[in-house]
Design a protein around this nucleic acid. Sequence first.
DNA 1: AGCTTTTGATAAAGCGGTTAAGTTCGGGCC
DNA 2: GGCCCGAACTTAACCGCTTTATCAAAAGCT
Lengths: 340, 340
Amino acid sequence: MARPTIADIAERAGVSKGAVSFALNGRPGVSEETRRRILAVADEMNWRPHRAARSLGNSRAGAVGLILPRPARTLGLEPFFGQIVSGLQAGLAEDGTALQLLVVEDPEAEMAAYRSWTAEQRVDGFVLLDPLIDDPRFAALEALEVPVMVLGGPLEDTSLSFSWADDSEAMHEAVDYLAALGHRHVVHVAGMPQFLHTKRRMDVLTEAKERHELAEVVSIPTDYSDSEGAVITRRVLSRRERPTAIVYDSDVMAVAGLGVALEMGVRVPQDLSILSFDDSLLARLTHPSLTALTRDTQGWATEAARGLLRLIADPSLTVRHQSSTPVLVPRESTAPPAGH
Amino acid sequence: MARPTIADIAERAGVSKGAVSFALNGRPGVSEETRRRILAVADEMNWRPHRAARSLGNSRAGAVGLILPRPARTLGLEPFFGQIVSGLQAGLAEDGTALQLLVVEDPEAEMAAYRSWTAEQRVDGFVLLDPLIDDPRFAALEALEVPVMVLGGPLEDTSLSFSWADDSEAMHEAVDYLAALGHRHVVHVAGMPQFLHTKRRMDVLTEAKERHELAEVVSIPTDYSDSEGAVITRRVLSRRERPTAIVYDSDVMAVAGLGVALEMGVRVPQDLSILSFDDSLLARLTHPSLTALTRDTQGWATEAARGLLRLIADPSLTVRHQSSTPVLVPRESTAPPAGH
DNA sequence: AGCTTTTGATAAAGCGGTTAAGTTCGGGCC
DNA sequence: GGCCCGAACTTAACCGCTTTATCAAAAGCT
């Protein structure tokens, strides 16, 4: 038989459609006995709710959107995305909510997608990655009045919910560690400067210079690509006065940087310490393996997903969640500088 | 104003709901003039079709499912998935179709998801990864009568559509190359033996032994993890008679293997050639960089997505598409064996 | 002119659920 | 006994869009 509908069940169980709906959704209006009978029939007929029909009725799409404004290839390159996606997925699955993915090429397309998915009621909410400084998306999304969970923060001047990890604290830990090892010349190969977390990391570095009386501390922004990571590394290692330590904002760049060091005959960690502000298989597989700030990205995303579900259930909420601070995992790529 | 519906448009344009529907969907039943007027009104009111409502009517969900039976963390580890996902996405986006992702822990959950998503009409079709030998999913999916595009093949004894790349041919190229360099002892660190493509690669190797009169050729199956890759490598490099070349079925394992070689003081490529049957950033970032069989994974997925869309439009079709064969890209990790 | 087609539009019936608003009925209470 | 009430169901409207049946008017044909 084709898909059974609640009408079929109703007929078979000898009750009305309404009663079936009550029974199946566990709400009052039917006796326990009737409920059991209806459930038995539904089960026997192998009934499943029709998503679209349900959505039409109660205006819940049963899905949330993740829109990534990145060149499509980065998705395959940055392990970060895979972890985020599977983490979100795990959190949403608890509720039977689906994750809809869209990769777009530019910010305009991203905004257009938020608008159309909202208008089409395709999703019940969005997850937003990489909040920017003065992010124009915030106001637009607030105007759309759609539940949004931002992965990053903390955010001010917005009613959007967010889940953040304390990058500043983590960066402190990293710099303190390098300073304790005796490093005085540190370069920070940063990510995109418009990203909120990039800025926060850079700020910590500036401040650390005074605190630890470091001789040199520079943050150099990049686009996160391995090639820029390599270029910058080559440049700073070519200067008369080399840094003795480099902090990279992603493991991809750190690995690229390590490659440049080897290529230039700079020994790691004897001549140069390398620290990655992002951990993944990549950081563990290299030789020497990379000291990294590690965190449970997947768990973070799962938490965020749960928050978003709460938000969808009660849009008046504002969820502000702090996940665990990244932790320094020392590996082989860091050591005291030569002559220390 | 809240979401405008076609009823609002109809009222404003002074026509019936039906006429509006005809006009918006570009089908006959309204005059050109009326159509333009209706479209103008719709545009002005910023109307968007309500997905659920549309789906209810014509039973198209406007989404396809990708269900991954993997431990969630692999998603973040294997660049392969990111490329597949973004590739599929690109193909589906051309049609406004969405991609729904689900990561499940085991094959039972996978099958359950196929069933429930089909029953709930949540998706119009599925993309299937990693076809197995005598894959039990095929029959189940055929029984569900839902459009399916398998990434892999070629498949026999099934009506499912597939898009494949010629692994055998690629493996031939790899082995021929190693043989030409003078290698006689080759180890193949394979993937999961139940995977169709793993088997095909292993078969080629067996056959190549005779063709090239190689002294030793073994395929050792693994679970694709970096740790197994490392363990196997350590084992074969510890034997009295070492292989002079190792072919890895994934770049993650190849990188892990490279690490073991370095750790054991085995020089690459002087003492050992390493070839990866999978290319990504990973293979390029290591030192030495890895010779790899490379292919346009993303493009492959995009093609497959298009095929699936055709299939959804006309379920009587069977799409059998062959994408380009992986190509050998020599890098620094391969060379003639010592003393050759 | 008289009749059949074609064209352009309408009204209404779903699609498969949810839900507000009845309807029945048995029981408790005065 | 009459009245009121809550529990257990039923009815029917509705969600937004598609589609079929219907119809009036214009156009085509002999």
